[in-house]
Design a protein around this nucleic acid. Structure first.
Lengths: 175, 175
DNA sequence: GGAATTTGGTTGAACCATCAACAAAGACGC
DNA sequence: GCGTCTTTGTTGATGGTTCAACCAAATTCC
């Protein structure tokens, strides 16, 4: 809201024109509704959250189903604190376990449990079906390419703002 | 992740093809980075959160700067609980006040404070500048239209999944 | 009038994200 | 060895979101 406005400021900002406003509102509408639907369906269909899923996927793709915390954080593009909290909750739910690392006694291995593996194996195909249903089945190939191109441009612009600071600016890895 | 996969399930799901995978990854990357940047800049530049801003905007657009809670909730597309929690925090920060409603003694009016008005007036132009910088300054008019069209399609598909249940499925109203 | 229901709104618990602070182990310089 | 710095990871606080439960006032139905 407030992308149009009767201007009363000194440094006249350039407000969005009608075309831009329409696109922006639609974008906000899409992102909130889509992420809500995907989260909810993951929870309802498979009993795990989107954040759980994001963590389980890289773990399950490792041959020995265990990773160091920072290795996992880098794979997800998350900061370590966020991951640590998430792992604590997942451990309580029995999806992962922590085990000590003998080579580096500061470190910890995160190990996928049987329950965790079952969850991610069950969730993955349903999640893909959801993404398909809400997005790709509805778009033309030109639109898919356009979406990719637009998203890369915007993401890169965000990255540009971050560098200079060595902020994390990590990607989500969700879904 | 896991949009490709060696298939080992009974009901062979249709995985995403390379084009779709690329678009999906880019989409996720864009949404996480863009919302992180916009949230952070709002906080840094104006000292309020994106959620605060979302609430302040419709309030500030009302002539008497006060609204009933559910009126506000509908304007935002939020559920009442979410809004109630948000209002409690905003009240603590001095951005709004609650006042009793004489006509309906269950009800409450939410009133914009002077501090709240100052905050939203200061935040709005900076926020528009951010949106411009990260999105519209980088896209062609064709891309802006394409984004609008794609977003409307996906949002509508999400709506379709919700109706049948009278779920809220509200839009955010943020930004 | 009086019981049942609906409406308006709050609360508490659980989850998720971010920031700052911390502790313990390793690495480096001497 | 000893001090400093860096790496690894956890913790606590605060803010945001959702769900279910709840209370009280208003409405509906008889």
């Amino acid at each position: 809201m407030m992308y149009s406005m009767t201007d009363a400021t000194a440094t006249a900002p350039r407000w969005l024109d009608a075309r831009e406003q329409a696109a922006w509102r639609a974008y906000l509408d899409m992102t909130t509704k889509l992420s809500a639907r995907l989260n909810r369906e993951m929870q309802d269909d498979s009993g795990i959250s989107a954040a759980d899923f994001a963590v389980l996927v890289p773990l399950s793709e490792h041959s020995d189903a265990r990773m160091r915390v920072l290795e996992l954080a880098r794979a997800l593009g998350w900061e370590k604190s966020r991951l640590s909290h998430q792992l604590t909750r997942m451990q309580q739910r029995g999806l992962v376990e922590r085990s000590d690392c003998s080579e580096d006694r500061r470190g910890a291995f995160i190990v996928l449990t049987g329950k965790g593996r079952d969850a991610v194996v069950a969730a993955a195909p349903k999640h893909v079906e959801s993404v398909r249903r809400y997005v790709f089945d509805e778009l033309s190939t030109e639109q898919v390419d356009a979406l990719g191109a637009i998203a890369r441009i915007v993401a890169e612009q965000c990255d540009a703002a971050c560098s200079g600071r060595e902020e994390t600016c990590g990607s989500d890895g969700f879904e």
